[in-house]
């Protein structure tokens, strides 16, 4: 069962719009500065439940629901050698947490897990290098792009349940650096990426072939892909635009849905999701299905229906502080909003 559904809704200083419903709060009193928040399906004692994962630079904690509106730390992995930079979501994977570590850029990817054989929590390195982009895909697959002085390597790693790598497949790299990857809903073996040259590239994960490189256009530089959907012969890609700044608001698109025809390489914008009115720019965002969420420079979190291009909810910064993180939980429908202090709010969307 979905852990969030077991929790009693409470509305202390909740969102302004009804589309986000406050579910519960989780407070990490140890946390000096939260760097990421996420969720993972966890199976224990014959049941599978949604657990929350919080990361600071030196520790990653797994939280379990103990009672309505009460979360307890189930375990903490201490990672003191290299700082944690982000949690890498692994959709539909159980009992595995993936994290990226590094100084300014990602230097290694680790899996954090519980081993029932030894009844212990442990972690293992699955990839090292100068990693530029990483994504977790369904069926325990992980794709990374890394760079040496001479060349770029793009690789898919099939993860084992015990935290190792079962198989590796090299993907043909494009000429310019890959900045982000996104799984393609509707075609299991397809993967899209965005590049530093503002192109969308498409791979065949089974063969490693680079199938297509399509330019996004000059109007929206440094586009980052979040999701892709194949439908009716078109490839719909959700892009965010990190340069959406307050100086351009309102009307500056944070997210765009762009339809690409992979056969011709031509594209057209389908829908824009713009900054809500007010002096705030885009800091970072996350997309699940057709819902986008972003932290704004004002410390608020905004949520959009990306197919309608409508901002559907805003979580204001409030007296307790600015929001720093906004992530959709695995399986969608639950938004995790985090503050630097380590406090995380769960909202049902």
């Amino acid at each position: 069962t979905d852990a969030a559904e077991q929790l009693t809704p409470v509305l202390p200083d909740g969102p302004r719009e009804e589309s986000l419903q406050f579910v519960s709060e989780l407070k990490d009193s140890w946390c000096a500065c939260a760097v990421d928040v996420g969720s993972v399906w966890w199976a224990a004692a014959g049941r599978r439940e949604l657990r929350v994962v919080t990361a600071s630079e030196s520790a990653v904690s797994l939280w379990e629901p103990l009672a309505p509106d009460c979360w307890g730390r189930a375990y903490t992995w201490h990672l003191t050698e290299v700082p944690v930079i982000q949690i890498v979501p692994l959709p539909d994977t159980c009992n595995l947490v993936c994290v990226a570590l590094g100084e300014l850029e990602i230097g290694e990817i680790r899996l954090l897990l519980y081993s029932s054989e030894t009844d212990s929590f442990k972690h293992s390195v699955v990839k090292t290098g100068n990693i530029k982009a990483v994504v977790g895909l369904k069926d325990r697959r992980l794709v990374c792009s890394s760079r040496t002085m001479q060349e770029q390597q793009v690789e898919m790693v099939l993860l084992s349940e015990t935290g190792g790598s079962k198989n590796r497949q090299t993907l043909m790299p494009p000429e310019d650096t890959v900045t982000a990857f996104a799984e393609v809903e509707g075609i299991r073996e397809a993967l899209v990426g965005t590049t530093a040259g503002n192109s969308v590239v498409v791979w065949n994960l089974k063969t490693g072939q680079l199938l297509r490189k399509m330019h996004v256009g000059y109007s929206y530089p440094a586009s980052i892909c979040h999701r892709a959907y194949s439908d009716s012969g078109l490839l719909f890609v959700v892009l965010s635009h990190p340069h959406a700044k307050e100086s351009e608001s309102p009307g500056s698109p944070v997210f765009r849905v762009v339809a690409f025809n992979p056969r011709s390489g031509r594209s057209t914008g389908v829908m824009f999701s713009c900054l809500p009115p007010g002096p705030a720019g885009y800091l970072e965002g996350d997309v699940w299905d057709t819902a986008g969420a972003a932290v704004l420079t004002s410390g608020a979190v905004a949520v959009w229906d990306l197919l309608r291009g409508r901002c559907t909810a805003v979580l204001p910064a409030g007296p307790a502080g600015h929001w720093a993180l906004a992530r959709w939980a695995t399986g969608g429908a639950v938004l995790l909003a985090g503050r630097c202090s380590g406090t995380v709010h769960l909202y049902r969307y």
């Binding site: 009716s232 012969g233 078109l234 025809n261 992979p262 056969r263 031509r266």
Partner: peptide, 23 residues
């Protein structure tokens, strides 16, 4: 968008591009 904007559309684009792309 119309087909004329985007060129001819193929429902099997993934298989077709995989057959055409270098291995």
């Amino acid at each position: 968008c119309s087909e004329s904007d985007l060129g001819p559309i193929s429902l099997n684009w993934f298989e077709e591009l995989s057959a055409e792309a270098p291995p």
